[in-house]
Design a protein around this nucleic acid. Sequence first.
DNA 1: CCTATTAGGTCC
DNA 2: GACCTAATAGGT
Length: 787
Amino acid sequence: MLAISLLSPPYATLSYATPAWLDISVWKCGQRVIVPLGKGGMLRAGIIVSIDDSSVKDGVVLKECLWPAEREPLLQPEYLAMVKQLALRHVVTEGEVLGGLLPAGLRTTKIRLRVLDGGKPRTMAMRDVANMSDIERCSLGVLWASNAVEVLDSTFDAEEQELCSLLEDPPWSVRPSAKRQIEVLDFLYDKGMLSRKRLLQELGSGVSAALNTLAERGLIRIGPREEGTCEACQDDDPECFFEADEGFVLYPEQQTVFDEFSALMHADGARSALLYGITGSGKTVVYLELAAEALANGRSVMLLAPEVALACKLEHAVHSRFPSQDCFFYNGYQSPTEREKTFRTLAERTAPCIIVGTRSALFLPSPTLGLIVLDEEHDTSFKQDEGLVYQAKEVAYYRAQQSNGLLLLGSATPDVKTFHAVQQKAVSMGVMRERAGEGELPEVSLLNIKNMKRADGILAAETKRQIRETVERGEQVVILLNRRGYSPLMYCLDCGQVARCPHCEVGLTYHKERERLICHYCGYSVTYPVVCSKCKGLHYLPMGEGTEKLEEYLAEILPPDTKILRLDRDSTRRPGKMQRILDAFANQEAQVLVGTQMLSKGHHFPNVTLAVVADGDLGLNLPDYRAAERTFQLLVQASGRAGRGEKAGRVLIQTRDPEHYCWQFVGSADYDGFYAEEIERRRKRKYPPFVKLALVRVSYPLDWRKGMEWVESLTEIARALGKEHNVRVLGHTPSPLPVLRGRKRFQWTLKSDGWVSIRTLYYAMRKAVPRGSKLRLSLDIDPVNML
DNA sequence: CCTATTAGGTCC
DNA sequence: GACCTAATAGGT
């Protein structure tokens, strides 16, 4: 009997009989197989998770497993153990975990068998095999046993390989009457690079002609991805100053830390360590030297960064340091084909190698890992909170432990939880407090803008003066504003109504370049001007500012020949665009760079002497116990942007809340001080790491009248069980975004001493909801994003 | 009383 | 997710 986890709905683990048409030795744990499901005999792909002869409960007649999708199993027992662990932890099925982890090509039933029995080669789909008589299947089984049948993997349609990407930014240079073309362009702008197939699927096959026209006129490119180029940086990174083929001379501080960690890596048992090094202290060099050591011991290395661009930098560094070493690059933005290829290659590989990528790379099968590095470990991107929920740090910890390797977390502003673990002696720590280059830490000053009127715009007079002076000196300025678009609120001048998203009840953001109002939560958009839903008026007053407006405003107040660049999600839609903007700024083609927080991470501009944080409080008012931590981390990272060259840098932070406790520490980048204060607050208010905290989210369609009843009865269940299991249940409360994508949303906050009781409670709540209900329930263990 | 729609439950 | 079945509303 085979226990098989299905890789698509219902994602259950079901038992199947071993069929007569194949020898029992064909079936192996971790193997991909094709099975029938339901009365219609639909086909599903699954993974064998165990093989035994225990029986199922009475009345269930086992179906037979149809055919293996491969001869040797894709997944090793350790991998399956990890999947099981994740499923238990997040109270989901193994099928849901596997379905969320495997590249699309490894989850499909669309494989074909090729029969080479001496006659004319035949190929057949799995459907054909299912329709055969038992006798035919048996003879096919004989051929399989004699290796006369091979599996042809779902060669994706040619259309799947034709990737469409934009070559221009909005506004589009097409006739306004070309509705189809505009539809395609807007869609690509929103979703990024897409295959022709998906495009036709989503927009209807009617857009086919529009696609061709656009390609001909050079507005889009259709074709396979160019080999060897990566999404984020299309050419060589100017910062790759690593000498090929030899190690570095480490600074004394780096050497000390390296020696400590190297000893740790060779020790036995579970080991995790924190590399606490200020910005510019040269953490990457330490990672690479440790990697060299792991490889020398015949063990593989994983290097993970919070986002693609940073992972890309790491990859360049790896290539320079280890020119002849196999290095695999993996991230969620690669095409399914590309990801599948890497997954398969690594599943078979036994020789040590280096894997570089973002959080999703953590789920690649790999040869025994000696070292896993999470750079910028405090970054919230390491948590996936949509679809399959996981915290990369925990998965990394598990994998490191499983393979007896070292987990190394690196940051200048560690996660409070991680630092607490260091204090508890659960994690070792190495400290680097010196900048490896010349640069001195910048001088940080706060600017109180509490009394500034809205009409004055977002920059205080003093800020404007400093920006102007810096530009006039021929130096560069970086300005951070965590709000993209032109203006986040549009007031109707006739009735005072704010333009809102019909699906989410949040204000629509005006994007001037595209002449559109856009919902930043669900992507809904309408062309501007639009009639007011209440009074049918057409006159709006844009209130508040986003990066687009700030860029425009700066052009007005700065000398006319000043070049200004903008870096946010809108200006970087096209592949390679982000790198081009960063390069242009690094080459001093512009004096000012305006951007959202994507700018604060890891980039390095020697001539920047002033960094301005336009709205320092933006994060502080979020309904999240980590608001202060987040703000502190962001601002210290941002401060690191100024003064990385020879000239001294200054950082100017505008705030309406200068009394807040986090500012005194931001100024001197005093992490230790901040930590001491923050941990005391958490102890007093009973927040993690002193309790386990989870969020149960629920949502239902706006028009479903029974929804509220259900939520109320779930609260009762939670309360009753909470008392019994010593879990504090707060809620139900409307989510911070009470309506999203046309669904009403509520949440419960659960606090407890242990995860087990929280899971028990959630499990009971979910059991109360019938499957297939309009109610969607999900558990977020240790949420990173309270929205 | 018949049929179109929908809510609930199962899939091994 | 797709499909089957039972329950229900709405129409004749």
